[in-house]
Amino acid sequence: MKRIYVNESRCIGCRLCEWECVFANSGLDAMFKLKDLAAENFAPRIRVEGGEKAELNFAVNCRHCEKAICVQSCIAGALSKTGEGMVVIDDKKCVGCFTCVLVCPFGAIMPRADGKAAQKCMLCTDNIKGEPNCVKYCPNGAIVFEER
């Protein structure tokens, strides 16, 4: 299965991937319309580590682990793996206990902006983009989507 990988030597910490992620999952037709989004509602599923102008930056999102500990630990059966190997969340089942947040070794699953359920990267298969928007618009090739 194709997964997202990052190359920290190419990341400049511009955080465009975070914006592209929020945009892809917003249902809006133009990114500038996110301008009015309150800071606490800005909840990308990909997060750039290292601050602005830091020596080191890189993005982190779901690794779609082969033996996903979040899936094993989910109290609701809301997290599961597709036949291909993608880790998906069913937000009708998620009760927002955040056991997944407690076990993910990458810190790659997080509360949704409303705090009522968890959210995670599903490689943009759950929005109209259909392919990872963060990868598509990374200007530096610091995030790639490939088979390894």
Partner: peptide, 12 residues
């Protein structure tokens, strides 16, 4: 609680 699993993995 954000990213608490990174702590848990250090324990595990």
């Amino acid at each position: 609680i954000q990213r608490a699993g990174i702590y848990t993995s250090l324990i595990r």
